[in-house]
Design a protein around this nucleic acid. Structure first.
Length: 441
DNA sequence: ACTTCGTGTCATTGG
DNA sequence: ATCCAATGACACGAA
């Protein structure tokens, strides 16, 4: 990754290599380039003492690309050098391709190099940020699918809700020690078998007969919709519920719909511990997945309304819902925690999706920039070759013109004593070297 | 046994 | 003051 970015940063050196536009072909731009083939100085002030060998690059084909042979030599001498490149300019432009036209190259597996967790997961940092109560809570935590790996004590603790050591789950809504109701809950009654996570459908149903009120809600609580609503966040992704939606909640559904693909992918992934997974028996029949931790807690505390409402109702509706029931402190605390966790779960999913999208975007950008860099490097090589050729050609012309000059006696001028120089107005003068030093042109 | 990935959760922050 | 979304960090289970 570092190497890739270093390569990327190297592009800055190419930024000085501007693509010439019409009448903007400044040779000075290239004077800082790498040394080129020794074809003599470009400037006319220091001509060769003897006619140099003809340019190796001087072929008819190469010429046609940059010169017009109909232009008289004297005319070329009398004009600025820019005009000599007129024919080459369109070609140069044609070589400039928009970045977007570059086909996608193979992706750098950036994601594979990125630890999404942000930390070395092998490094289990002591949970310093957790309060003592939270730490206790974490010890009680049992995830649904793997409860069989825990001891019976853990199972009971989890299902019953950590209630003692983790009052109100350290929720901001629940001051520590402010929920005595938790301790009064008879968890053993709810999970008398001691294995709540491995409850069969039969046993689960048997636990739903708490009260008439609660029983009336069990359908929506556990089996509403096409798929179980046991997953607290799932309702956001399910069909809209116009009757209970406010503009605020509708907004949430809109954003969630855009994420449905990701959720479908992740939810149905064979990896991870997602509670979204449909539990398909080997025979192919779909069974009810284990209850989530919060669902078990809600069952234990006999929360009289469904999880999806707890989580997805707008705050006003949620508060109104709470007023419709007389809840104990423990129930209130649990409901608020369920709501907080459920919303945060969705937020985390959205956050991760954005993170992945950001990585994908950066990978694409990196590939495009690498392709652009490669293209510019190629272009630079072509310009260097062209420039070397032009220099060689100019040297030839200079030598040719100089050799035809004669003094008053009909003798050729010595290149050691004279040189041809061009003034800004385009006129050519034969200047002695002595004057040249005093009056640099 | 170890690593990687996906996920849930908590704490924190800023709007 | 409260709610909420976003996010880093951590823990955990599955593969």
């Amino acid at each position: 990754m570092d190497v890739a970015w270093q390569e990327l940063m190297a592009i800055t050196e190419l930024q000085e290599f501007e693509v010439p536009t019409e009448n903007s072909y400044e040779t000075t731009q290239y004077q800082t380039m790498e040394p080129m083939a020794s074809v003599g100085e470009y400037g006319m002030a220091q001509p060769h003492s003897e006619p140099p060998a003809a340019c190796e690059l001087r072929t008819a084909e190469a010429y046609n690309g940059f010169y017009s042979e109909e232009v008289p030599t004297c005319h070329r001498l009398g004009t600025s050098t820019e005009t000599m490149y007129g024919n080459s300019e369109p070609q140069l432009h044609q070589r400039i391709l928009p970045i977007s036209s570059h086909p996608q190259q193979s992706f750098v597996p950036l994601r594979e190099q990125t630890n999404m967790s942000g930390v070395n997961q092998g490094h289990r940092r002591t949970n310093a940020c957790l309060t003592q109560g939270l730490r206790g809570h974490m010890q009680w935590t049992v995830h649904g699918q793997n409860a069989h790996t825990r001891s019976g004590d853990d199972l009971e603790s989890d299902s019953g809700l950590s209630l003692g050591s983790s009052p109100p789950l350290a929720s901001p809504d629940n001051p520590v020690g402010g929920a005595p109701g938790y301790q009064s809950v008879d968890i053993g009654m709810a999970y008398s078998d001691g294995e709540p996570d491995s409850m069969t459908e039969h046993t689960r149903r048997s636990h739903l007969h708490y009260s008439a009120d609660y029983q009336n809600h069990t359908h929506s609580y556990l089996h509403s919709g096409a798929h179980p609503s046991y997953f607290s966040a799932q309702p956001i992704l399910s069909q809209p519920q116009p009757s209970t939606q406010t503009p605020r909640s509708m907004k949430h559904q809109g954003s969630a719909a855009a994420l449905s693909d990701l959720y479908n992918d992740s939810a149905m992934s064979s990896r991870g511990s997602s509670h979204l997974n449909m539990y398909i028996k080997p025979q192919g029949s779909i069974s009810t997945p284990p209850l989530s931790r919060d669902e078990r807690r809600a069952l234990a505390l006999k929360i009289p309304f469904p999880m999806d409402k707890i989580i997805n109702l707008p705050v006003d509706d949620f508060n109104e819902l709470l007023t419709q029931y007389t809840l104990t402190d423990a129930q209130l605390a649990l409901v608020r925690d369920i709501r907080r966790r459920g919303k945060n779960k969705v937020a985390a999913q959205n956050c991760r999706k954005r993170k992945l999208e950001s990585i994908i975007h950066l990978e694409r950008e990196l590939n495009q920039l690498q392709a652009q860099r490669e293209h510019l490097a190629q272009e630079r090589l072509e310009f260097q070759r062209s420039l070397a050729f032009v220099k060689c050609r100019l040297t030839d012309l200079y030598t040719q013109v100089f050799s035809h000059l004669r003094d008053e006696d009909g003798q050729p001028y010595s290149t050691d004593e004279y040189s041809l120089q061009q003034t800004p107005d385009g006129k050519i003068y034969l200047v002695p070297h002595t004057m040249q030093k005093r009056e640099p042109c």
